[in-house]
Design a protein around this nucleic acid. Sequence first.
DNA 1: TATGAAAAGATAATCCC
DNA 2: GGGATTATCTTTTCATA
Lengths: 160, 160
Amino acid sequence: MPAEIDAIDMKILELMQRDASLSTAELAERVGLSQSPCWRRIQRLREEGYIKAQVVIVDREKLGFKMQIFAQVKMTTLSDEDRAKFHKAINDIPEILECYTVFGEMDAMLKILAPDVIWYQDFIFSTLLKLPGVVDVRSIVTLTESKSTTAIPMRARKFR
Amino acid sequence: MPAEIDAIDMKILELMQRDASLSTAELAERVGLSQSPCWRRIQRLREEGYIKAQVVIVDREKLGFKMQIFAQVKMTTLSDEDRAKFHKAINDIPEILECYTVFGEMDAMLKILAPDVIWYQDFIFSTLLKLPGVVDVRSIVTLTESKSTTAIPMRARKFR
DNA sequence: TATGAAAAGATAATCCC
DNA sequence: GGGATTATCTTTTCATA
């Protein structure tokens, strides 16, 4: 049973969500602790799953993915087996970064990377529409990305 | 003028996108280099902007954000000044993780975190709809998250 | 120009209080 | 939680190809 986290843990998470290359000593100083307790807190945050991973964020455009698309997918009702097949397929396609089931008119929402429009059009017909249960795809193509972060707020704000 | 990256660089990025806590020595071994050249490659990848950041991924649900929403926003035509205001506002709201301008019926797409439905409803009326130019918000609430990665594929796949 | 071995410096991890 | 120690890793240097 993971204990609750306190204000110092939150500060640590806040800092590490922005720069995980900070040393324990530097983090410690910024949150007002000395090295060892700060290090122990970080370990605990990892063990208890508050920190899920430490990764590097790569420039997608520099790597040739000029397009980012949100694809809304309409699906037929699926057997458990087909549902598993669908998610397995999604998982094996690296250009699909995110997959959610959603409320509303459509049934799933995907975030997809593509090098260009030609590739994406082919992808829809030769891959997406052939996944189990998929009957329709509606694509929302992003033009400019004005904000993009993985940093979660450390508490939901009140509004004015 | 940043040089192109080669197959070894790609392998390094692939590994670091999944686990950035690997030591240089371990990375070096896995890509078939010794420490120093591997280390220099990582430096270069940072300097040239292929690696944009090193961060920790935090469990949003454990931190109380039970809801994730894609909000499609319809906007009036904006002056440059109002557009700047809009983006400034977006940037200052930590619950908005991503913001894109998009093609189609709506004009912007936001990824938003919320602790619960009540909070989100208030957020729409007291914050979103008061941003400069916003005239309509259509929300797509996610139910389950079956895939979520920040790892970009190292080359677009061909399809079968 | 790029590599690898090895030294120097910094940081992470452990121990004891 | 803090201080000090040890183990490990990062970063620089330098010789080599």
